[in-house]
Design a protein around this nucleic acid. Structure first.
Lengths: 115, 115
DNA sequence: TTGACATTTGCCCATATGGGCATACGATTG
DNA sequence: CAATCGTATGCCCATATGGGCAAATGTCAA
């Protein structure tokens, strides 16, 4: 078997950097295909193909506006990815690992023993 | 050009469901290749190949233990994915976006009861 | 050394890709 | 109706894949 289709799920869809770029652009609001293509330096057919993939996995939404087709982020499209990632959360609270990135004023208190 | 290599980055690596399964299994602790293969119903060479991909993108770590090679999750391997996803957080509270900065409440020595 | 076990790698295939290009489709206007 | 603009599709190719299998490599024990 070859690699799974890019339209299999959001994981495969966002494996392509250009598609991630498209999604990032769309964070600022809906865009027409040609506009996206120009902004991202790809040909119009390429943008269209990528957008189709993103649409088939539910990551973007289309809206016809005159001759144009405006693509927009699907609010919960990335939820499946986010859910999967959540299971890999670092056990952060355990000890405030990244606390050392904070100003030293934290350590100035009374010994800092919060136990 | 064909699709990007699965070893290009974590995004491409986790596009494969079986590799996500491997990572999920490893959440419970380190495993030998054959063990993973049996648990996930794949051949041993397949598991080995998947693990290689995961290792090349920094998602897992290996440790030789006798004849076996124990694979383990790389704690911050998925950070790049998580970072990218973070930009797509729902604009939930309008005011808690920059929470990753050091909250000044921590510095306050007084009644600083956090958690 | 040989033998047994665990893992990796090499080779084959069928399949899906992304890029480029031409072209078909769709909507709007005249 | 035709003309035009904006998008989508179809076709070609080179490339990377994942699966299966055999063989190579590694590690340890007699």
């Amino acid at each position: 078997m070859a690699r799974a289709s890019t339209t299999t799920d959001a994981f495969n869809a966002i494996a392509e950097a250009q598609r991630r770029d498209i999604l990032s652009r769309l964070r600022a609001g809906e865009r027409a295909v040609g506009e996206l293509a120009r902004e991202l330096g790809m040909t119009q057919p390429q943008a269209s193909k990528h957008l189709r993939v993103l649409r088939e996995v539910g990551l973007v939404q289309v809206r016809g506006e005159g001759k144009q087709r405006l693509y927009e982020l699907e609010p919960f499209g990335l939820e499946s990815v986010r859910d999967w990632l959540r299971d890999f959360e670092q056990p952060r609270s355990e000890g405030f690992d990244r606390l050392d990135e904070c100003p030293s004023s934290l350590a100035g208190g009374g010994g800092g023993a919060h136990e």
